[in-house]
């Protein structure tokens, strides 16, 4: 159909797309170059001759080694992972049940409750961290992973509930009606028929929740204090900067390593994300 001239395709398509790709990916390339560059090369005046900042002539893994040996980085990775997995699990469980109830069951106040769960978006973490810190202290949860495992669901549940509710609404009602006639209870129809069908939506919500927890910063910054308890983002900020001195090599190495797990999870993500958003069931 829509036929274009070749030069037009270059001007309106290839060139802009290339700029987008370069602009998007350059910071990551820069992370990588910095992480494998020896300090001597790193801190050389920008007017120095032979300064070739876009690559390095003597790649080294010393920053990675320092990161692993001189800091508790592996611990941070594990902490982040542990907290992200558990809080994602809790949020998905809550979101599944609540999303199902809001999408399918008739009960008084259903609309109001749905809206109020949605409206908790109104209250981002940065609005709550001061009183929440007090509550965490009262519950004796300060400086434990549970402080984060219990608070992360506050922003994960509303969004998983809404995403899954939308997904459930695309599943024909007759499927569970049929299951109930076939001999399943309401609960059984939900777990045996609806949940298995909603797997793409669940995966999409789960991946999203996982990365949001991996990403979270302010609660982790305030609720955790000892170095070995920290998550990657907080550890990098607080342990790899001494006063005014930034250990750029290690920082970038840590940034790379801390990004890889989410990037891996996401490599499956694009397709599910799209299906989760537009979700549909055939059959």
């Amino acid at each position: 159909m829509l036929i274009e001239r070749r030069w037009k395709k270059w001007v309106f398509f290839y060139i802009p797309l290339t700029i987008f790709v370069l602009g998007t990916l350059f910071p990551f390339y820069w992370m990588l170059v910095t992480a494998i560059r020896p300090d001597a090369e790193l801190y050389r005046s920008w007017r120095a001759v032979n300064n070739a900042p876009f690559w390095t002539v003597q790649p080294t893994l010393e920053h990675f080694r320092d990161l692993m040996e001189k800091t508790t980085f592996p611990r941070w990775l594990w902490n982040t992972f542990f907290i992200a997995v558990i809080s994602t699990g809790i949020s998905l469980a809550c979101g599944l049940l609540a999303g199902y109830a809001l999408a399918r069951l008739k009960f008084p106040m259903a609309g109001a409750l749905g809206t109020s769960i949605f409206v908790t978006y109104l209250v981002p973490p940065t609005l709550l961290f001061i009183p929440l810190a007090d509550i965490i202290r009262d519950l004796q949860l300060g400086n434990t992973p549970w402080a984060l495992i219990l608070t992360y669901p506050t922003f994960l549940i509303p969004f998983s509930t809404w995403l899954l509710m939308g997904y459930f609404k695309t599943i024909p009602k007759e499927l569970e009606e049929c299951a109930r006639i076939d001999g399943a209870t309401r609960f059984g129809a939900m777990t045996r028929i609806i949940f298995p069908i909603a797997v793409p939506g669940i995966l999409s919500a789960g991946i999203f929740a996982f990365t949001l927890s991996w990403n979270e910063f302010i609660y982790a910054l305030i609720f955790l204090s000892s170095p070995e308890r920290k998550t990657v983002p907080v550890g990098v900020v607080s342990e790899l900067i001494r006063g005014d001195i930034y250990f750029w090599g290690q920082l970038m190495a840590g940034a790379l390593l801390g990004s890889i797990p989410v990037a891996l999870v996401y490599s499956f993500f694009v397709e599910y994300y799209v299906t989760g958003l537009t979700g549909s069931v055939k059959g």
Binding site: C178, I181, G183, I197, G283
Partner: peptide, 20 residues
Amino acid sequence: LPPKDRDIAMVFQNYALYPH
């Protein structure tokens, strides 16, 4: 009685086959 205890079977307009 809930549907499961009524000993009936139903065929729906959109067939309602379990897709999975």
